[in-house]
Design a protein around this nucleic acid. Structure first.
Length: 134
DNA sequence: GCCAACGTTGGC
DNA sequence: GCCAACGTTGGC
């Protein structure tokens, strides 16, 4: 199962909103690189929920809950259904991620504007460790 | 097909 | 509020 990271501004749609809704379609992505990642997602993949702007932190884990669907009338863009899995014990901030040399290759760091990006297994595991607190 | 201008995202 | 990094648009 692949791992991903998806960004949202918390004042627009937050982790708590997702928990309240139970499931939502991750839509509105209008960037080609992000679209390619959305298309590569499969049901059962997991993704970090990242709060951009105010928080700048990974706050939770969600699950891709089904197949991608067209987003918009012409079908050029796609959206995927996601469900909350669990909140992280503690948010892992962008500052912490940038301070960790093992995470320097993350797309989150390398291309900060990309709203949907892949996460390597070892990066995923390390962020979970950081959240659990060493 | 190149590139300057402009718009957007998101960190600081 | 500013600016860097990108993406897109449009003139040539």
């Amino acid at each position: 199962m692949a791992k991903w990271l998806m960004k949202s501004e918390p004042h627009v749609y937050s982790w708590d909103d997702l928990v309240r809704d139970g499931e939502t379609d991750w839509d509105g992505v209008r960037n080609n690189a992000a679209r390619l990642h959305l298309r590569a997602m499969r049901e059962g993949d997991e993704a970090f929920f990242y709060h951009s702007n105010a928080d700048k932190a990974v706050v939770g884990i969600m699950r891709i809950a089904g197949a991608q669907k067209p987003d918009g009338p012409d079908g050029a863009w796609v959206k995927v259904p996601v469900q909350p899995v669990r909140k992280l014990p503690r948010p892992v901030t962008l500052a912490e991620i940038k301070a960790e040399p093992k995470l320097a290759a993350m797309e989150l760091v390398r291309q900060s504007r990309l709203s949907v990006s892949p996460v390597r297994e070892e990066e995923w595991a390390l962020i979970l460790e950081m959240s659990a607190g060493a």
